[in-house]
Amino acid sequence: MTGQDVALVLLGVVALGGGVLCVTTRQIVHAALWLVVAFGGLAGSYLVLTAEFVAWVQVLIYVGAVVVLLLFGIMLTRAPIGRNDGLDSENRWVALVVAVATAALLVTTVVLGFGGAHKDVKPGGGSADALGSSVFRTWVLPFEVASVLLLAALVGAIVLSRTDIGAKDGD
């Protein structure tokens, strides 16, 4: 195991732990914060994997915007702050079964597929320079489509939240 692997594993454990705590905690705001931990762990993993641009985008967007949005949502829906036992639905045991089955299946497949594969990695493939030229040359069309998608999402979110557009007459 190289140092890269060790670092990767440790950061992965951090992310996993954050994720597990996010989905099991009884305080809704804590869940958002554990989510931040998970995102942070993942950003660290990206760095170890030499994909620094993706790592900073992850921090920027996810931690910076998505979690803030989620916190706004918690606030606006008057979610119960503090310890609350009603956060898990009745479905959780079935959900546990399905999740364990998924985990078993995926892990087995991956381990069976890539058990001992080893390669040397070269740094530099994840720089902003490399990725930027790649996006604006090879992947420019999906990039444009993604921007249209963002526009659509923006418009849709605005329409959905307008209070002065009511139900149609007769409903």
Partner: peptide, 21 residues
């Protein structure tokens, strides 16, 4: 309950994938 439906879907997918694999 949408969660029931989703559980069904995901469980089914897991089963199918397991069979395939």
């Amino acid at each position: 309950d949408p969660q029931t439906y989703l559980t069904g879907v995901l469980g089914g997918v897991v089963v199918i994938v397991a069979v395939v694999v």
